[in-house]
Nucleic acid binder design. Structure first.
Ligand code: NAD
Ligand code: NAD
Lengths: 209, 209
DNA sequence: TAATATTTGTGATTTTTTTCACTATAAATA
DNA sequence: TATTTATAGTGAAAAAAATCACAAATATTA
C-alpha cells in the first residue's frame, strides 16, 4: 500500500468527518458528501478510498461505520497512542485540557514544563512533571507522540530530548522548523503562516487552485 | 502573476525564516539554506522565487533584507491587517495574548465571546466584546481577518456573522469545515488531523513523499 | 591574472496528482 | 417488470508539480 501525503491528509479529514456523521446517526455517505466536507472532489475521494481497496455501494455510497473502521484500520488510526505536551504556558495548557484529543484516541498522559512554580499552580487532571523527568516518564508511560509548545528557541532542544527518550512523532507549535532523523514523523503548525497564506490569497495576485 | 497554493505556502515559510535570519544579522541566504529551513529542495525554492521575478546573486544567494521586502511586497505580507478572535476560551484566550501575531503584522484588535462573565473576568490589553457587537466592531475597526475559536457547533454561524460584517479571511480552529462564498479565504487548522497524519505515517504503510 | 568553485536561473524532462469519461450496478420509480 | 437515476470504480488523459541538468555569472583562491 502506498499513499501520498495528500491522500493521507484527505483520508484523515474523511475519518474525522465520518466520526461526526456516525455520531449524528447518518448511515451512508457518498463520495460527493465526503468531498464537500473536506474540500475535495468526488473523484479524488473515490480514488483515495479505492487505493485502500475499500469498496462502497452503488447508489448508496459508503457505509459510514464500516468506512470509518476500515480507514482507521488501514491508517492505524484506531489504535490508541499516548502523547505528552512540553511547555505548559498559554497554548500548552489549553492543549492539555482539550478533551477531544482523548476522544480521538490520542491520550495526553503527561505535561512537562521547566518552570516549577507553574507546575505547582497548574490545575489539571493530567500529571505534570519538570522537564528533567522527560526521559523517565516517556519510557514509563509508553509515550509515542510529543507536542511541543515551548518558546521557539527551545523547540529543537526539546525535540532532541523527546526523540532520545523514544518519541517517534512530533507536533510542533513553535515557529522554527526542527531538524529530525528521517524516521521521526513531524508536523509543524505555525499559525502565523496560516494568516500569511490567507493574506497572500486575499491580495489576489495568485491562482486559486 | 500566478502562484499555486504550494508555492504560496512555501513562500510564506521562507518569509518567516528570512525574518529570523534578518534578526540574527545574516545578510545572505542561498536557495539551499532556505530550502533546508522550510523542508523543500533548492530547485523548488529557486523556482518559487523566480516566479515572482525576484533575482539573487551568483555565488552569494539572496540578500535577506531585500528578498524579505520583495516577497512581502508581492504577496502583500508587508501591509498590516486587523484581526479579531471569536471565542475566548482556553484556545482563544491563548491566541489573544500571542504577541507574535502583532510582530508579524497581524493586529488582533478585538476579541468576542458570548459569555458576559468571561468578558468581565478576562485580563488582556485587547478590547473584548459580546458577540452581539461583532458587526459594529468589525466595521468600526476595519477588521479583515477572523479567527474562530468557538466550539465547533457554532463555527459556521460565527463565520457567517463575520463575513456579513465584512471579514474576508478566516482562520478556523474548530474541527468542522465551514462553507463560505468562494471569495472568502479560509484555512482550517484541526490539530487532531495533524496527529492523525503523524499516526498514519508512523504506521508506515504509506510512501514517504 | 587564470583557474576553480559556488550558486543562480531556467528550459526540458520526469514524476505525481488530479480530472475525465465511461462502465457497471443496484436502488427507486413508473 | 421495465425504465430511470444515482453512484461507485477505474483506466486513460490532462494538468500540475517537482526535479534535473546545465549555462551563466561572479566570488574566491592560487
Ligand atoms: N500562545 C499562542 O496562542 C501561540 C500561538 C501560536 C504559536 N505559539 C507557540 O507556542 C509556543 C508556546 O507559546 P505560549 O504563548 O504558550 O508561550 P508561554 O510563554 O505562555 O509558555 C511557554 C511555556 O514553556 C515553558 N518553557 C520554557 N522553556 C522551556 C523548556 N526548555 N522546557 C520546558 N518548558 C519550557 C515556560 O515555562 C512556559 O510555561 C511558542 O513556540 C509559540 O511560538 C503560541
Ligand atoms: N483547547 C484547545 O487546545 C483546542 C485545540 C484544538 C482545537 N480547539 C478548538 O477550538 C475551539 C475552542 O476550544 P476551547 O478548548 O478553547 O473551548 P472553550 O470551551 O474553552 O472555549 C470556547 C469559548 O467560546 C465561547 N463561545 C461559545 N459559543 C459562542 C458563540 N456562539 N459565540 C462566541 N463565543 C462563544 C465560550 O463562552 C468559550 O469562552 C473548539 O472549536 C475546539 O475544537 C481547541
Amino acid at each position: 500500500m502506498s499513499l501520498s501525503n495528500n491522500s493521507i491528509e484527505r483520508i484523515c479529514k474523511i475519518f474525522g468527518y465520518l466520526d461526526t456523521l456516525d455520531k449524528q446517526g447518518t448511515k451512508f455517505a457518498s463520495s460527493l458528501d465526503l468531498a464537500k466536507a473536506i474540500g475535495a472532489t468526488s473523484y479524488t475521494v473515490r480514488k483515495d478510498i479505492s487505493l485502500l481497496n475499500i469498496i462502497g455501494y452503488t447508489r448508496k455510497g459508503y457505509d459510514v461505520k464500516t468506512l470509518k473502521e476500515e480507514l482507521g484500520q488501514k491508517l492505524c488510526l484506531n489504535k490508541k497512542r499516548n502523547a505528552c505536551i512540553v511547555g505548559l504556558g498559554r497554548l500548552g495548557s489549553a492543549l492539555l485540557d482539550y478533551e477531544k484529543f482523548q476522544e480521538d484516541g490520542f491520550d495526553v498522559v503527561a505535561g512537562f514544563d521547566s518552570n516549577i512554580n507553574k507546575l505547582e499552580r497548574i490545575r489539571t487532571d493530567i500529571d505534570v512533571y519538570p522537564v528533567s523527568r522527560i526521559n523517565e516518564i516517556i519510557i514509563r508511560k509508553h509515550i509515542e507522540l510529543g507536542i511541543i509548545a515551548v518558546p521557539s528557541e527551545y523547540a529543537q532542544n526539546i525535540a532532541d530530548t523527546l526523540i532520545k527518550a523514544g518519541v517517534t512523532g512530533i507536533l510542533n507549535f513553535s515557529y522554527v522548523k526542527i531538524n529530525l532523523p528521517k524516521n521521526i514523523i513531524n508536523v509543524n503548525l505555525d499559525f502565523t503562516n496560516s494568516l500569511r497564506f490567507i493574506a497572500a490569497k486575499l491580495s489576489g495576485n495568485t491562482t486559486n487552485k
